[in-house]
Design a protein around this nucleic acid. Structure first.
Lengths: 219, 219
DNA sequence: ACATTGAGCTTACACATGTAAGCCGAAATT
DNA sequence: AATTTCGGCTTACATGTGTAAGCTCAATGT
């Protein structure tokens, strides 16, 4: 029941995933990756690739799921550390920027496929981002006692600004990156304060736009 | 002096540009475009392409410049129409969304190359976006009498949110797109109001991050 | 009127890609 | 012990790519 065979299969599957991740860089996007090169780096014959994924797209979707999950876990984790005092905004942004600079390939993947040419990819990334938004909105409702509607608009705006800043951070050195982070922190605070001023005219707010629900393979 | 020859050259140069624009779609990105196919659609031999552009990258940069310019002109134009009353935020966002839905290929190009694999491309798009920011910031300083620092932070945040919303709009139908626009309008107002609350603590604000200056071929 | 220029062409090459067909041999199942 | 399963291999093919070399011939410059 040990599954010598299954274990080996899982192993080369990971090899493929890691090979893909490895080849991703500032100069090489996922869409410019070739099945043959990935297979080569994973030390298997090109045609053996198909024993694990139907095509490159399926591999890519796996990467998106794993990447999104990793970032979300990191953020969730750092949000818990906050309960013992400290600014959530600052800590969350530090965590986020850490991810961007230390896992650039993954973040770049998310960014690129979010506006990429495959509907499946875009939806997959949209789902990941929606998770961030939801978790943040839930937090705002629970801890800050904001009305759901305002919390969601605010969370949406914050996520948009932060992701966009993350994109810029990819090309900056450490000092400029920190400056950008400080700037982003202020911008998030602007949104927070601004959102609070909408407590009075809730009834004028539009409902949130929801993305079409689709299967989700994450936790 | 009429320049029969020069005129013809300009004509096929445009044919190349238009061919490229024509092939761009939700499913086909610029990076997946091939020199041969573009040449084919422009009705010239593949090798003749080089009479006009050194390579595809140069063509792409031209598209980015033209696209960014088009959007900026549209926005500038709509901002002037405002002087005769009306909400700038609303009108600007309507204009922006018009551009996104009616020139999707161009907007997609900007989005994709902003996080693409070519530094040149990223810088080119960054420059375009910087123009939007600057023009908006200038407006805020001149018409709303905001301190430069706050105006820039606010403009930056607004542009980030709006562009991000534009990205989402690409996959939405007309009604959802309108809903998204309404939502974005509120979010922009949040930022505006939030920024105003920072009038008191200007001295605590970080300086803006500036992108490395580079040549600029626009007006 | 003659020489030069240059946009466009044809031909050709080397190369990388995705994937179909089918064999091999060890692990798993019966 | 006999059979089936299946991850990995080799070989092979058709296709698309960027671009080098060099010709043609009408518009231009003198």
């Amino acid at each position: 029941m040990a599954g010598v065979r299954a274990r080996q299969k899982e192993k080369t599957r990971r090899a493929l995933i890691d090979a893909a991740l490895n080849q991703l860089s500032a100069e090489i996007s996922f869409s410019s990756l070739s099945l043959r090169e990935v297979a080569r780096e994973a030390q298997i014959a090109p045609t053996s690739f198909y024993r694990h994924f139907q095509n490159m797209e399926e591999l890519g979707l796996t990467l998106v799921d794993e990447g999104g999950l990793a970032l979300r876990q990191l953020l969730r984790q750092s949000r818990q550390r906050i309960d013992s005092g400290g600014s959530i905004i600052r800590v969350s942004l530090e965590t986020f920027m850490y991810f961007v600079t230390n896992h650039g390939s993954v973040f770049r993947l998310l960014l690129q496929e979010r506006s990429g040419t495959s509907r499946e990819f875009r939806d997959a990334v949209a789902r990941e981002i929606d998770h961030f938004k939801s978790e943040l909105a839930d937090y705002l409702v629970a801890e800050r006692e904001l009305p759901r509607l305002i919390a969601e608009l605010q969370a949406d705006a914050v996520v948009r600004v932060v992701f966009s800043a993350g994109a810029d951070a990819l090309d900056l050195d450490a000092t400029q990156c920190n400056l950008l982070m400080e700037q982003t922190i202020v911008q998030v605070r602007m949104i927070v304060r601004g959102a609070a001023t909408f407590m009075d005219d809730i009834q004028t707010l539009p409902a949130s736009v929801h993305i079409p629900a689709k299967p989700d393979h994450s936790s």
